[in-house]
């Protein structure tokens, strides 16, 4: 058993695949830097992310897996779940070693696991598309803070860019301390100094005057459409788990 230690990036993952084939490794355990495993008698190998090698692996993978499949692998990678890089590695090795396209072989444990992770990440992405609540700042920028379970910001860009093409906006991931900023032309990754801004109420001074009015109207609307005789708290919480409430205008 060889333990490969990589930096947690997608390119790092692909470089690790390169190492596996280059060194003809058989039984491997892939893990992120910083997680110490203390097994005494095992080989350790620090994988240094190499874009040329990563690209070679990606190019080879494209021969074996559809472009949708590559996107799915990337989405599963964004789950950043500890220990699950072995499922990704297993999937990629299975894809390389098989004679046919294996994307739909749901009987295979790696394919099934990756499919589960993709579903989890996409669900979180979809939740963010729903639960982002913009607040209008004085400079006409719409700002939203989020704390998604997985690192889904990169997957959100396309949706928000095509939807809110005529307004400047920022979606900021407080947990991972970075955000996306759209300036009416392009998006870029940014990081802000005020890490302490994690409640929509915190930066009231920076809001436009009508921001408070529309938040008030939205809260009113939300309570008006409820039908008390159909109350179903279990269903309500299943749809909007409590951890999302602190960023939802209507639930604060």
């Amino acid at each position: 058993m060889t333990t490969l230690i990589y930096d947690g990036t997608f390119e790092g993952l692909l470089t690790s695949v390169f190492e596996v084939y280059d060194r003809r490794l058989d039984r491997v355990n892939l893990q992120k830097t910083g997680l110490n495993s203390n097994a005494l008698f095992e080989d350790k190998l620090q994988v240094i992310t190499d874009y040329v090698r990563a690209n070679r692996v990606l190019k080879g993978l494209k021969q074996k897996v559809s472009s949708m499949g590559i996107q799915r692998l990337y989405a599963a990678h964004l789950a950043e779940m500890d220990g699950e890089e072995n499922s990704l590695l297993g999937y990629i090795r299975y894809a390389f070693d098989a004679g046919q396209n294996i994307e739909e072989d749901y009987g295979n444990k790696f394919v099934m696991r990756v499919s589960e992770m993709v579903r989890m990440v996409r669900r979180e992405k979809h939740r963010m598309e729903a639960f982002v609540r913009f607040q209008k700042l004085k400079d006409e920028t719409y700002y939203a803070a989020v704390e998604p379970d997985f690192n889904v910001l990169p997957l959100l860009i396309r949706h928000f860019k095509s939807r809110y093409a005529d307004q400047k906006w920022i979606i900021y991931d407080i947990k991972r301390k970075y955000g996306i900023y759209y300036d009416l032309h392009d998006t870029q990754y940014i990081s802000l100094d005020f890490a302490s801004v994690n409640k929509p109420g915190d930066v009231i001074a920076a809001f436009t005057e009508d921001e408070g009015i529309y938040q008030h109207l939205w809260k009113n609307y939300f309570s008006s459409v409820n039908i008390p005789s159909r109350k179903n708290t279990k269903l309500h919480v299943r749809h909007i788990p409590k951890r999302y409430w602190k960023h939802l205008t209507e639930k604060i």
Binding site: A130, S162, R163, Y164, A165, F222, I227, K231, N232, I240
Partner: peptide
């Protein structure tokens, strides 16, 4: 689709919130 840098698009349904009776709030 969103054309000419306008506002919004309508492609995939999104439920933005849920009332306490568990029904989705998607539209005004």
């Amino acid at each position: 689709k969103n054309e000419n840098k306008g506002l919004g698009n309508a492609s995939n349904g999104i439920c933005h919130s849920y009332t306490e009776d568990g029904r989705c709030v998607s539209l005004l």
